[in-house]
Amino acid sequence: MLLLSQVSKRYGDALALAATDLQVPGGETLVLIGPSGCGKSTLLRLIAGLIQSDSGSITFEGAVLTPDNILQARQQMGYVIQEGGLFPHLTVRDNVTVMARYLRRDPDWIDARLTELSNLVQLQPELMQRFPAELSGGQRQRVSLMRALMLDPDLLLLDEPLGSLDPMIRYQLQQELKAIFARLGKTVVMVTHDIAEAVYFGQTLVLMRDGYIVQTGSFKDLAQAPAEAFVEQFISAQREPMAKLTEALK
């Protein structure tokens, strides 16, 4: 499905991503996790072709990505970012359908698809005529997801999709998203810094630090057989507050 081979990226002297190999099997949800600046977003943006790698190659659905085929390939990728990245001058409907209209898809198909997706993400049809400024943060992320799914891509790239939401909405959307992924059976690569979220979504976790992949595996692998001390530190830093909460309830 997606294969990264010796892909690296530098900004001047600063290393953003060391030469990295990564394989994402079809239908699987892979979560990139790590502290800020570890290279997880860089990796995602390299896959989407938003930045060019300095070395290595990315193979998507059997073809090596190049500047020539990236536009085509992006139609098979859905991309959602933290703040949603919605176009403020377009209505929800226009935001979601912009690419389909550009590709001159059949208007009836577009309408049907819009209804289907608004049901999927549970947005009321009357919201379709609103502008992003008239939506709540959670609604915006739902719209962003609709836009990413519009052309029925094979791969979903999510960069901290729930990062700017408050905890209640975030919890609710996590559940919905997981259900949607399960139902659609898409390949998902998601970036987060929240280990609970990572565990909730991911079959495979990729823990990164300073541009390197430290360890790849299930949460159990990481917790029980940490490749280095950092893995343990990273997990326990986020487990500690949980433990305290549990303690307080006793």
């Binding site: 943006r45 989407a48 072709g49 938003l50 536009l71 085509q72 390939a73 992006r74 139609q75 990728m77 991309y79 970012i81 933290q82 703040e83 990245g85 919605l86 176009f87 403020p88 001058h89 912009v98 690419m99 550009y102 836009r147 790239l157």
Partner: peptide, 25 residues
């Protein structure tokens, strides 16, 4: 930049991005 990248990530070519997203903004 998030908006420019979102337009890119949709697969819109440069001229279409200019017309549909960037110039209106």
């Amino acid at each position: 930049p998030a908006i420019v990248e979102s337009a890119q990530a949709l697969g819109l070519p440069s001229r279409a991005r200019l017309r549909i997203v960037e110039l209106p903004l």
